[in-house]
Design a protein around this nucleic acid. Structure first.
Length: 429
RNA sequence: GUGGGUGUAGCUCAGUUGGUGGUAGCACCUGGUUGUGGCCCAGGAGGUCGUGGGUUCAAGUCCCAUCACUCACCCCA
């Protein structure tokens, strides 16, 4: 009986992992350009943290969390709660009044898996803490758009405001009245939602609900003057930054903590899982978790969904490269080649070699397969002469090099990777 | 949690009315003269036909169950 990965859990194997590296590298690069700092948190937290931040009555907390009940600890279903906990615990607001933070890592939710939805999935998550400035809202959306754009993913950005503790209850009341008038026409789910989280009735997918809801009151017309001013300023900022967006009065959030600005990056190409990224402002949350009274805003993107979109676009995967393949022929030569390869690696060369004592033809094939730029051939002939043969795989030219000065000679001929970085990133040229 | 679809080689898949598992493609290994890659050719290796029952002289094929995967609902990134 073979042991397989758990349902909803996936391995990322060579050939696919290169795409992940590309996405993460692009995101990190852009985070740096926007002056964000990385933070990493543990995966396990006290269950209470998520109950308090995400909301007791949300689906995530009610039935989707991986919890060790006896220990009252839970594997994080999202990043914001953990990040804020760390922010509060380390007093980061004292060190710097405005913190711009990002994190990348796995999240866990026990849902039925489907396309673009796994039980362990990965998010990149961004939070700006310490300022209510609407420019930050616009800047964040612009950054999210830039990441997706540089990856070559086309999405639309939809935005709404959910108001604040002052104006949202007023709107909620108006909405409840509206729903009450036509509750018979709404689907079962919406009947339930109207009690638990009436705002969610607005984004029901059921066509008849949708039709009913078209006439529903708009939150955008119920905003208090501060929220309305903020909402307008965010839109002004987006225009200044030349970010395309559309307003969607039906867009609400499943998590309790959002206030004012909310937004989603939507794609048409992922079936039911349309949201590639989503986020919004949560001005009361830090205080609610016992921290300072600072506003915050953030968003998360689903890496699996981004990867799926990239895979749909182009089958181009990796081409990792090797600087030199060391081919030893015969026992004596291999005896010399083995430590030589190690030395080259120490010098910074990406070096491959085969330990199975195979034929030269076979080793050449391998060298070709791993994309080696050069092959160094050491056999009995060479040992006698005190030389080795260096073959340029592309030009097919070969030259002899004295074994005594081998590594310095090689280094001068084979320039190490100019980027010095991950070979997966050098595939552009 | 609720529905639908699909399970044959590492991957993508053939498999006729039940009659010994494929000459299929990709990938892998070894060869095509003595020590040179990509192309081509030849050979090789690789499978408890998801699992467990049942019908039958005979089941990959029919029936039941179960598990897994997958899509959708729900929810969300």
């Amino acid at each position: 009986m073979k042991i397989k990965a758990l349902n909803g859990f996936k391995d990322i194997v060579p050939g696919e992992v290169e795409l992940w590296q590309k996405v993460e590298a692009t995101a990190r690069d852009i985070f740096a350009r926007f002056n964000f700092n990385e933070i990493r948190m543990p995966i396990l937290e006290k269950t209470e943290l998520f109950a308090r931040s995400i909301g007791e009555a949300t689906d995530i907390v009610e039935k989707e969390m991986y919890t060790f009940a006896d220990k009252q600890i839970t594997m994080r279903p999202e990043a914001t709660a953990s990040l804020l906990r760390a922010y509060i615990q380390h007093g980061l607001h004292v060190q710097k009044p405005i913190q711009r933070l990002f994190t990348i890592g796995p999240m866990f939710r026990h849902e039925r898996p489907q396309k673009g939805r796994l039980r362990q999935f990965h998010q990149l998550d961004v939070e700006v803490l310490g300022t209510p400035n609407p420019r930050v809202d616009a800047e964040l959306m612009a950054m999210g758009a830039m990441i997706l754009e540089e990856l070559g993913i086309t999405v639309s950005l939809e935005m709404n405001s959910l108001g604040c503790p002052i104006c949202r209850p007023v709107f909620r009341e108006a909405l409840l009245n509206f729903i009450d008038d036509r509750k018979d026409a709404l689907c079962e789910d919406c009947a339930r939602r109207s009690k638990t989280n009436p705002l969610r009735v607005l984004d029901c997918k059921n066509p008849t609900c949708r039709k009913q809801v078209e006439e529903a009151p708009s939150i955008q017309e119920h905003l208090c003057s501060e929220c309305d001013e903020h909402f307008n300023a965010v839109q002004g900022g987006l225009t200044q930054l030349n970010v395309q967006y559309s307003l969607n009065k039906f867009m609400v959030r499943g998590l309790d903590y959002y206030t004012r600005t909310t937004f989603e990056f939507i794609t048409k190409d992922l079936g039911a899982q349309a949201a590639v990224g989503a986020g919004g402002r949560y001005d009361g949350l830090v205080a609610k978790l016992g921290g300072p009274k600072v506003p915050g805003i953030g968003f998360a993107m689903g890496l699996e969904r981004i990867i799926l979109l990239l895979q749909q676009q182009e089958e181009s995967a990796d081409n990792t490269q090797i600087d030199i393949f060391v081919a030893g022929l015969g026992e004596k030569a291999s005896e010399l080649a083995f430590p030589l390869a190690h030395k080259l690696r120490g010098e910074g060369l990406f070096t491959a070699m085969d330990h199975e004592a195979r034929s030269l033809k076979s080793q050449m094939k391998q060298a070709n397969k791993v994309n080696a730029r050069y092959v160094l051939i050491i056999g009995d002939n060479e040992l006698e002469k005190g030389t080795a043969v260096l073959r340029n795989m592309e030009s097919q030219e070969q030259q002899e090099i004295a074994i005594t000065s081998l590594s310095t000679e090689l280094l001068s001929i084979i320039l190490p990777h100019s980027t010095g970085g991950n070979p997966a990133q050098t595939h552009d040229n």
